[in-house]
């Protein structure tokens, strides 16, 4: 991890002041089935946060609820201290892959240009400036050469990068990404991580739904463990513990074998450094 080590002051309750994202008592139900119960989440600005949890834990739902894409049964969401309605210019979103019609008659450049639509306002059309912004975003993700491709003629990783570029061109304070690493090759994964770090260096906050537990300590500053309710949330070093993972993933933690020769830690089991996932072999 970098020298970047955020240790924010304890947040003022419920005002969300000083926080990039403040979620309070969020409950979401699809029809009669609750999928998130009373979730609290505080994300200080300028860091990379991973949201991890088993399948169906409600990670995607959490993102969608924060972004107002699914109705909430209860709770409150503040982005930089403001309700979503007043903070729309400050949030970006990279949806889970496969949520659009790939055969839609549109090019990569076109898709990225959509990131400028809000700035443009009603009726006005994207002009040269918007196209240039979109092109430079495509360049940042290494996709400039594919600007004119119809999107179904891109590989999975390339498609993912196009949607990343769309979020980049929006240039928001907080960006939510739903499994940006799903189905991309190692090269793309590294490129995306570089982008994330670049965003962080510029003071942006990124919330990423992530699946690969091994890379959590390498890529992220903070982590939220989620399974229907919030299990734990905080700096990786503190909350990414075996105990918390067990709570999150239930009994299915057989993969958490210790190293053959673990250095006995003074604090024993509860010492966060011992059970830090980075020391646990897959």
């Amino acid at each position: 991890m970098t020298a970047h080590d955020p240790s924010p002051a304890p947040p003022a309750p419920h005002t969300g002041a000083g926080l990039a994202v403040a979620v309070h008592d969020l409950t979401v139900a699809y029809r009669d089935k609750p999928v998130l119960w009373d979730v609290d989440l505080e994300v200080p600005p300028g860091l990379l946060l991973a949201v991890v949890g088993p399948n169906g834990a409600g990670k995607s739902t959490l993102l969608k609820a924060i972004l107002g894409l699914v109705p909430t049964a209860a709770g409150q969401v503040l982005i930089h201290g403001e309700p979503l309605a007043r903070a729309r210019d400050r949030v970006g979103y990279v949806p889970q892959r496969g949520s659009v019609d790939w055969d839609f008659p549109t090019s990569a450049l076109d898709v990225v240009t959509m990131g400028t639509y809000r700035r443009l306002g009603w009726v006005r059309r994207p002009g040269r400036r918007e196209r240039e912004a979109a092109l430079s975003a495509l360049e940042r993700v290494g996709m400039a050469a594919f600007a004119d491709r119809q999107i179904s003629q891109l590989s999975g990783g390339q498609q993912q990068r196009v949607f990343l570029a769309r979020a980049l061109v929006q240039d928001t304070d907080v960006t939510f990404m739903d499994e940006p690493f799903q189905g991309v090759d190692a090269l793309t994964e590294r490129a995306i991580v570089e982008l994330l770090k670049d965003l962080r260096a510029r003071g942006r906050t990124v919330v990423v739904v992530h699946h690969d537990l091994q890379t959590v300590p390498d890529y992220f500053d903070w982590v939220t463990l989620l399974n229907v309710r919030r299990i734990a949330s905080g700096p990786v070093a503190e909350v990414f513990t075996e105990e918390n993972l067990r709570l999150t993933y239930g009994g299915r933690v057989g993969f958490l074998e210790r190293k053959a020769d673990p250095t006995p830690a003074p604090g024993g089991r509860d010492d966060p450094t011992t059970s830090h996932f980075g020391r646990i072999r897959p």
Binding site: N55, Q182, D212, F255
Partner: peptide
Amino acid sequence: GGHVPGAAAHGH
């Protein structure tokens, strides 16, 4: 081994 069983096949 790079994935948690179950978590790896984020299938739904």
